[in-house]
Design a protein around this nucleic acid. Structure first.
Lengths: 250, 250
DNA sequence: CGTCTCATTGATCCGCCTCAATAGCTGTGG
DNA sequence: CCACAGCTATTGAGGCGGATCAATGAGACG
């Protein structure tokens, strides 16, 4: 939503968007070099790595972006996924360093907007501020839902919620009542997202398949057969969840 | 930090702050009626409850505010604490409803700023926008740290991190190198924050006391005796954590 | 002095992790 | 074409961390 408006209704700002990177009027491309090295970024994209200066906001135009943190022992936790239309502002409270690691899970393209450009854009087009506010509210609402389930939910609830979240967030790309979608994740990554081991993710999803709630085909092509049951497992009302995590212009 | 600037450097805005509530130049008071009914709000504060319209941002002036969500079965998870200087914007992606339940853990006072006032203030005083951005970045950074530990950390790590977070966030109120502080929480509430049962919170903290890392006195007066060990248990570097979660004007 | 709340400690149970083995799939090189 | 390696998914077996249940202690309060 955000990206569409950005480009459709404010071409002046859209042009300015790309000026954040070396003044060039082309989007920053993040490309995974190969499946073997999914963490590798093209050179321009190393800006995104933890510890670097960050004085830009990214708007995801295409692809899946994962924001993650790791413990010393190597344990990795995916904090959130950023999908097209989402805004990524990884800055920590010191205003300069990034608090998360950012990686592209698929080939992806981002628009980089420097803080300076961003402020100018907002002052010139207040509607942009409202839209960004809604996108940020959506991000916060879905992280809060996940915190709730990380703290208090069972494995089944966590996985069911994650699948519903994907279903809802991907719906704009495949029709409003689409219950079939693809997630570019291994079970290991899905486990890193919901706080479970890959083994237990596998068991949990297998059980859902056996119970006729899901269908799965080669590597995470998912079809939800029984959405009400899945929502019950996740402990959510689907319509209510949509209101909370899908940015909607008033 | 934010609140100080708000009042010290922009009295005009500060006056406007309170105009969000019925035009009265007094802050909205949230008072717990008694310890027996900590969830009870004074009448004016019911604005804050989940499901209500929310078109205001709150700036915490004094007291502890808890943001929480609950599952159907009554399980409660505290998403975050808002302390003096923090900004609370509970709105969900629909732009109107709140995605969390807000409650005061102590007597508390909040400044309520309507979205309209907020935009005017920002346009008149751009520095306010930068400050709010840092406060929001701090909120996000500490929630991300907690998501990491909810997903991958042991009980010891979760509790240790929470204590360090409190220590750092409360430091401005009691000197920069203060390792002694009070948290107005029961072990049940601390458990709701870190995703553990109150029983296990008790065991974990007792062990820390036995190991000479902490001292505890009547209901959560805490003194950190061995900060390096606590930081090791939490899996953080204290200085790094400060940079990430304490808003700092550049 | 009884009641209420909260902290503490013990005992038991279970959900999920870990380890391990197998199977399926893809790409690669002989 | 087959053989092999590498990665992911799947399934089983066993162990452990934290939940749950239960009992006692300790202040705070009326």
């Amino acid at each position: 939503m955000f990206a569409e408006y950005l480009f459709a209704e404010y071409p002046h700002a859209a042009a300015r968007v790309f000026s954040g990177i070396g003044g060039e009027a082309v989007p920053l491309m993040l490309q995974t070099v190969s499946n073997r090295h999914p963490h590798h970024f093209s050179k321009d994209a190393t800006l995104l790595l933890e510890g670097d200066k960050c004085n830009v906001v990214y708007c995801v135009l295409d692809g899946w972006i994962a924001l993650s943190k790791a413990l010393e022992d190597g344990q990795n936790q995916i904090i959130d996924f950023a999908l097209p239309g989402d805004i990524v502002d990884p800055v920590a409270a010191d205003g300069t360093t990034s608090s998360v690691t950012i990686e592209a899970l698929t080939d992806a393209s981002l628009a980089a907007i420097s803080y300076g450009s961003w402020e100018i854009m907002i002052s010139e087009w207040p509607e942009l501020y409202h839209l960004a506010h809604l996108v940020e509210a959506a991000r916060q609402a879905r992280r809060d839902e996940r915190i709730l389930r990380l703290g208090k939910g069972t494995a089944e609830m966590r996985v069911a919620y994650a699948l519903l979240e994907f279903c809802i967030r991907l719906a704009p790309a495949c029709g409003s009542e689409c219950h079939q979608f693809h997630i570019p994740l291994t079970q290991q990554q899905l486990g890193d997202y919901v706080g479970l081991s890959s083994v237990h993710v596998c068991r949990t999803m297998r059980r859902m398949v056996r119970n006729g709630i899901l269908e799965m085909h080669d590597h995470m092509d998912i079809r939800i057969l029984d959405a009400p049951s899945l929502a019950r497992l996740a402990g959510v009302d689907i319509e209510e969840l949509k209101r909370e995590i899908v940015p909607t212009r008033m």
